[in-house]
């Protein structure tokens, strides 16, 4: 079947528009002078068209509907708004900053997909948006002593540390605010009363200070009530909290002197 140096694959590639212009031109000229060659090319075009139009049972009965349902139901909302304090996976910080606020604007399907992302702390670069005052929905605030500061710089997100008073600190996530200060979201479990503290501490000029904290009643099983997260989310939105840093970026940011 070979003719004039054009094998089947070259003719097919020509029919499919996959040849570089130079070789395509050579094939076109040869085909113009050779009806047999032209027919072989036409056959490749025909087979492509027939395949494209073939009925291949693509729809199924209700598959698409089932998948749409799957997308909607993939992550039930309540679970995504509460988080477990003792998550086992150290690489999955418990919550993505600003997720809640974004959810408010989303249609259902997107919310569900987004909900899947809550907990995986993937960076979706929300760049700093200009200046403005540092907001502070502060219940308790102040600079932090050396001991706690060292805990903040060494505990990876997802990790736990014991504080001097016996309480357990859990590092949730690390991010930067609009000024580029490195901030850490924390949960501190009460030693006895079961209450927990949600806090955000940020570092500037090598000094850590608490910029947000609130006491929340523990609701059992290590879950923080969803409502308190709304308050935290509002704070994070106010300071233009960037997305949580991944493990490598976090290590680098925490190690960098002077707030990185």
């Amino acid at each position: 079947m070979n003719r004039a140096g054009f094998d089947d694959e070259i003719l097919m590639a020509y029919a499919d528009g996959e040849l570089d212009p130079e070789r395509a031109e050579a094939v076109a000229q040869a085909a113009a002078a050779d009806p047999h060659l032209a027919d072989r090319i036409a056959t490749y075009r025909d087979t492509a068209r027939v395949a494209r139009d073939a009925k291949l049972d693509a729809e199924g009965d209700d598959l698409q509907e089932r998948i749409a349902r799957l997308v909607r139901e993939a992550a039930p909302a309540p679970k995504t708004l509460a988080r477990t304090v003792d998550r086992p996976d150290p690489f999955l910080p418990a919550r993505r900053a600003r997720a809640f606020r974004q959810r408010l604007h989303l249609p259902m399907a997107a919310s569900v997909v987004l909900a899947l992302l809550v907990g995986s702390a993937i960076g979706f670069g929300l760049g700093a948006r200009g200046g403005g005052e540092e907001a502070s929905a502060i219940v308790l605030a102040g600079t932090i002593g050396d001991d706690l500061a060292s805990v903040l710089t060494t505990t990876p997100s997802g990790g736990m540390a014991s504080l001097a008073d016996g309480r357990a600190l859990r590092a949730v996530a690390t991010f930067r605010d609009r000024r580029g200060d490195v901030c850490r979201e924390l949960e501190i479990d009460g030693a006895s009363d079961g209450d927990a503290v949600l806090a955000v501490a940020c570092r500037r000029d090598e000094t850590w200070s608490v910029r947000f904290s609130m006491t929340v009643p523990a609701s059992g099983a290590g879950y923080v009530p969803a409502g308190s997260l709304e308050t935290l989310d509002a704070f994070l939105a106010d300071i233009d909290a960037g997305e949580p840093l991944d493990a490598d970026a976090e290590r680098a940011a925490l190690a960098a002197p002077g707030g990185g």
Binding site: V113, I122, G123
Partner: peptide
Amino acid sequence: MMPAAAPDSTPDDRDRFARA
């Protein structure tokens, strides 16, 4: 380790992802 997501992903992107 966690993969870094594309930096320009937005809620619209995620909505599009679900619909797509």
